[in-house]
């Protein structure tokens, strides 16, 4: 619970106005000095006091209301089915190229229109929109990992981080090792809330240095994350599907990365997609796999309290109006 704050605190300077109803006594008493000669009427005194209090309350409530009180953004705990997902999104130039399927290998003319990156982004948009309880963080990477968004479940923010990649072409180099390390670091500074997922979306692999491999293995085990690799296969790229027919060679960067991720000891699955449909299925699979209870905190937007104060002021003003109306009736009766 956060404290109450004001969006226009200067309005509180008007608060002395709330004492106006008490001023009348000193002014009026001498003019009606004869009242003092009457026997003291305790009921009248009480009603007088009450009306002044009500008037003060009406003025004070209206003034405080005008100062725009609000209870600052509060955190609310939500329990749902989801995970904390760090998306590592490849921003290398090759992602700007269109998809391919086996039949068109070597024939660029037959490739489908949308780039791999665009298709991946659209699927990610659908995936994130369908999982309201997930906390997403977005990293884009080329030569360096860049955090575009820290963990959040705000749908607009997630969308903004994904669609930002629609603009401009990709960057030259790719360093998956440092991207994975950034993903690990993103979790390391956070309390463990529930299932942790690193979702690597790339169209290539890499042979990592031994010390990077060592650091990653230790880091991944420490943060207890699962890894999914959405491998978007390009024209002429190697498969990481072990069909058993052909020996997969570690010399192929994709195979090397696949083998390394398998060896880390944390749950890992690779999804190889050669066309948008396959990519869509992979995303659906991940959606199915990641159904765990997660306790997250969401930021509830700040609550404006002015309405309540105006309501109090309205109530008080209503009471005073009724009191005046009765007074009028008394005159009329005389």
């Amino acid at each position: 619970m956060s404290d109450i704050e004001f969006s226009a605190p200067w309005a509180l300077l008007l608060l002395p106005l709330a004492l106006l109803p008490w001023w009348s006594r000193s002014r009026d008493l001498p003019r009606h000095a004869w009242i003092a000669l009457l026997p003291r009427d305790h009921l009248s005194d009480a009603i007088d006091l009450a009306l002044r209090l009500v008037a003060t309350l009406a003025l004070a409530a209206a003034i405080v209301g005008l100062a725009g009180p609000y209870r600052g953004p509060t955190t609310v705990t939500r329990v749902g089915e989801g995970a904390e997902i760090a998306i590592l999104f490849d921003r290398s130039r090759s992602m700007d190229l269109p998809f391919t399927n086996n039949s068109s290998i070597g024939n660029r003319a037959e490739t489908t229109g949308d780039s791999k990156g665009r298709v991946a982004r659209e699927l990610l948009l659908r995936f994130t929109a369908a999982r309201p309880f997930d906390e997403f963080a977005m990293f884009i990477f080329s030569a360096r990992p860049m955090r575009a968004l820290d963990f959040t479940s705000a749908p607009d923010a997630i969308r903004a981080a994904i669609t930002a990649n629609d603009v401009g072409r990709g960057l030259g180099e790719t360093d998956i090792g440092s991207a994975l390390e950034a993903g690990v670091a993103a979790f390391e500074s956070r309390p463990y809330l529930g299932a942790r997922v690193i979702l690597l979306v790339s169209d290539g692999g890499a042979r990592l240095d031994p010390d990077v491999r060592h650091r990653l293995t230790a880091g991944l085990q420490r943060i207890r994350a699962r890894i999914y690799w959405l491998y978007i296969r390009s024209i002429g790229s190697a498969t990481i599907r072990d069909s058993g027919e052909m020996e997969l060679s570690d010399a192929i960067p994709e195979v090397a990365l696949h083998r390394f991720l398998e060896s880390t000891g944390v749950p890992y699955r690779a999804f190889e997609a050669e066309d948008p449909k396959e990519l869509g299925r992979a995303i659906e699979d991940i959606d199915k796999l990641e159904k765990h209870t997660i306790v997250t905190t969401a930021i509830a937007p700040r609550r404006e309290l002015a309405g309540w104060l105006f309501a109090v002021a309205a109530g008080c003003a209503g009471l005073l109006t009724v009191a005046r109306l009765r007074q009028r009736e008394a005159w009329g009766a005389a």
Binding site: D28, I35, D45, D48, R52, Q327
Partner: peptide, 14 residues
């Protein structure tokens, strides 16, 4: 008439 006297209709009417 003072606020105080408003609570005393009889005084006022008189």
């Amino acid at each position: 008439p003072a606020l105080r006297s408003r609570a005393q209709p009889r005084t006022l009417s008189s």
